[in-house]
Design a protein around this nucleic acid. Structure first.
Length: 643
DNA sequence: CTAGGGTTAG
């Protein structure tokens, strides 16, 4: 290399902006050095892969280069495009390389091309690259084959991803993590767990990435015991203070119904990001605790973390479930006016639910019309649900007609509409629904509930007879029902209400609903005082809701039921709200009415608590219940730490 | 001379 070229290469190594690069480039051209391979590579490298580079300039350089680019030159371009907004170009350059260059792809080329393929969502390209990887013998490279696993996974082909993984000659920790994430994303949570077990058997250690992926699966299937175990492992390998791990832990605890522990993790964090706050707000939202969600939202804004669309989803969810119409509307408005976020279908869905649940059905309808998504069946279905609650036949018919017109009707819609007709004693309408059901051969989704006991998950369906301890469970359930009745439970009379008609025709008369079986089993198999956590796929019916409430009183147990959309938290025969004064580490359990009546208020720098509500003090693993007194207590709120 | 991974709603 001549002295001039050496100087230019040194200049390029120190280059930090496109302006400088352009100057150097013209200098190169003047000196007639633009076909010098080393200089070309350095120019290309800066344009294609540095943060301040320019991919279009890289293309320009590439097109004007008149000898055959080296593999590394191709790699720069393929790499640059693979992480750009147009990954397709990455593939185009890869194809061009194969067809027009003497330079052959190496392991790096495949890594970058696979990364691009992961983002363009094309199974045929995946298969083609897979073939080339095999032919070139690079399948033995752990990174290349892990990229292949990710590629199939991102394209929705879990089976092939697993096959590639299973046949990998060399695997490392990242490969295992990729496979676990793949299962977790695909909703195959138990497969994700079994990968973890296999890792243990093969002596592979886990890291923070493994834990985050597994925690996400725990959150989805409410596997609290598994989640707690992962929390312990995170502490053992000292990654529990990573923001990723902490956020995943908060999400897991909140979705497993343990807000106490979610708050515990939240309090211990040194750094918090949007996801940290969102996880807490969503946690409160899905528990139906709008007031608390709003309080977290205020603290979030005060600590200068910018809320995003998901933040507002959590807020609106909490407001609609707690019946906070005014607050919901307020936050829906500031979402766009103050935070410049555009509401999407899900936000409109929450608003329709907010108005509908509160009985303001006309406003709910208006919301659908003013939204940008008035053809979305979910919104109409939400309205239909509200019409059922408030027994509004006219609007119910409007919603149902719309669903039929959109060809989006399902069995659930028919169930709702049928019960609206029944409630209105409209035999004709009822008959027309039956006809529709027959002609479309629609089946309802079977309901099931599960409960985690030890490391086992027990799943129940309606009138379940499959469980090995079935007989015992039914005799226990009889006993439980009797004790609940003594505590005040009134089983819903199936002959009295309008439900009868629809229940009979749909085969879901109020027999032993799956959550009743799960509760009976939980009472049998856990020691006195243990909290029961039930998860179910549908909504909890009114009778089971009331049943659970009285069981919590009769057996003195906290029972937390997670249904399709929210949590129901029962204790002492009440539906309760957990109010956390997180800056104090104080945890209050009170009824939603108390919360609404403002028995806990934060005014300026102090918090006022009416102590007739039950107070629990949260302190690491110790919870202590203090009995109420009638006087008012004033507690100084200290500065919020580390925000 | 250059590679791979992560968390939130329904």
């Amino acid at each position: 290399m001549c002295e001039k070229a050496r100087v230019i290469v040194r200049m390029l190594q120190g280059c930090n902006s496109m302006n400088k690069l352009r100057k150097i480039h013209s200098h190169v051209i003047i000196n007639g050095l633009h076909h010098h391979p080393s200089i070309f590579n350095h120019l290309l490298r800066f344009c294609a892969v540095s943060v301040t580079g320019s991919l279009s300039y890289a293309q320009l350089l590439f097109d004007r280069f008149d000898s055959d680019p080296s593999t590394s030159a191709w790699n720069y371009l393929i790499r640059g495009f693979s992480i750009s907004s147009s990954p397709l170009y990455s593939i185009l350059y890869y194809n061009r390389m194969l067809l027009s260059s003497v330079s052959r792809p190496d392991i790096f080329t495949f890594s970058f091309a696979l990364k691009a393929c992961e983002r363009i969502r094309s199974i045929p390209k995946c298969l083609e690259l897979h073939g080339s990887v095999i032919r070139s013998g690079f399948l033995a490279d752990a990174i290349v084959s892990t990229n292949l696993v990710r590629c199939y996974s991102a394209n929705g082909s879990v089976e092939i991803a697993f096959k590639v993984f299973d046949e990998m000659p060399v695997r490392d920790l990242v490969s295992w993590n990729a496979m676990i994430s793949c299962f977790s994303h695909a909703g195959l949570h138990h497969q994700a767990f079994s990968m973890y077990n296999r890792m243990g058997n093969e002596g592979v250690c886990v890291d923070a990435y493994t834990i985050v992926a597994l925690l996400s699966s725990c959150a989805h299937v409410s596997a609290l015991n598994m989640g707690v175990m992962l929390h312990r492992i995170a502490c053992d390998i000292r990654c529990e203070s990573s923001v990723f791990v902490s956020n995943a832990l908060i999400g897991m605890y909140a979705k497993c119904g343990s807000l106490e522990n979610a708050v515990g993790v939240f309090n211990g964090m040194r750094k918090r990001d949007v996801l940290t706050w969102n996880s807490m707000i969503i946690g409160y939202g899905v528990h139906g605790h709008g007031v608390e969600a709003i309080s977290f939202f205020r603290k979030m804004v005060a600590s200068r973390v910018r809320p995003n669309a998901v933040t507002f989803l959590g807020l609106l969810l909490g407001c609609s479930h707690q019946g906070l119409v005014k607050e919901g509307v307020e936050h829906f408005e500031i979402m766009s006016s103050q935070f410049h976020l555009t509401p999407n279908v899900k936000h409109y869905g929450c608003m329709v639910d907010l108005f509908g649940r509160a009985g303001q059905l006309e406003k709910a309808l208006e919301m659908i019309h003013t939204s940008s998504c008035h053809e979305d069946p979910v919104l109409w279905r939400t309205l239909l649900g509200s019409c059922k609650i408030h027994r509004n036949l006219e609007l119910g018919e409007v919603a149902m007609k719309k669903l039929v017109q959109l060809e989006a009707f399902n069995a659930g819609d028919y169930v709702l509409m049928t019960s609206i007709y029944s409630a209105a004693n409209d035999a004709q309408g009822f008959a027309s629904m039956r006809k529709l059901i027959r002609s479309h051969d629609l089946r309802t989704i079977p309901g099931w509930s599960w409960i985690e006991i030890g490391d086992q998950v027990h799943k129940f369906v309606v009138d379940d007879k499959m469980h090995p301890e079935s007989a015992l469970i039914y005799s226990e359930l009889g006993e439980v029902i009797n004790r609940a009745i003594l505590a005040g439970y009134k089983p819903e009379d199936s002959n009295r209400t309008a439900h009868t008609l629809s229940d009979r025709c749909l085969g879901s008369a109020d027999t032993s609903h799956s959550e009743k079986l799960a509760i009976a089993y939980g009472l049998m198999r856990t020691t006195a005082g243990t909290t029961l956590r039930i998860t179910k796929n549908l909504r909890v019916c009114r009778d089971c809701h009331s049943f659970t409430k009285y069981v919590s009183k009769a057996f003195n147990r906290e029972i937390i039921v997670r249904d399709r959309v929210r949590f129901h938290h029962f204790a002492g025969g009440e539906l309760i709200v957990i109010r956390v004064l997180y800056s104090l580490g104080v945890l209050l359990k009170l009824s939603p009415q108390d919360s609404l009546k403002g028995k806990v208020r934060e005014t300026g720098d102090e918090t006022i608590i009416d102590t007739e509500v039950v107070i629990m003090v949260w302190n690491k693993n110790i919870t202590e219940t203090r009995k109420s007194t009638k006087e008012k207590r004033r507690i100084q709120t200290p500065e919020i730490a580390e925000t």
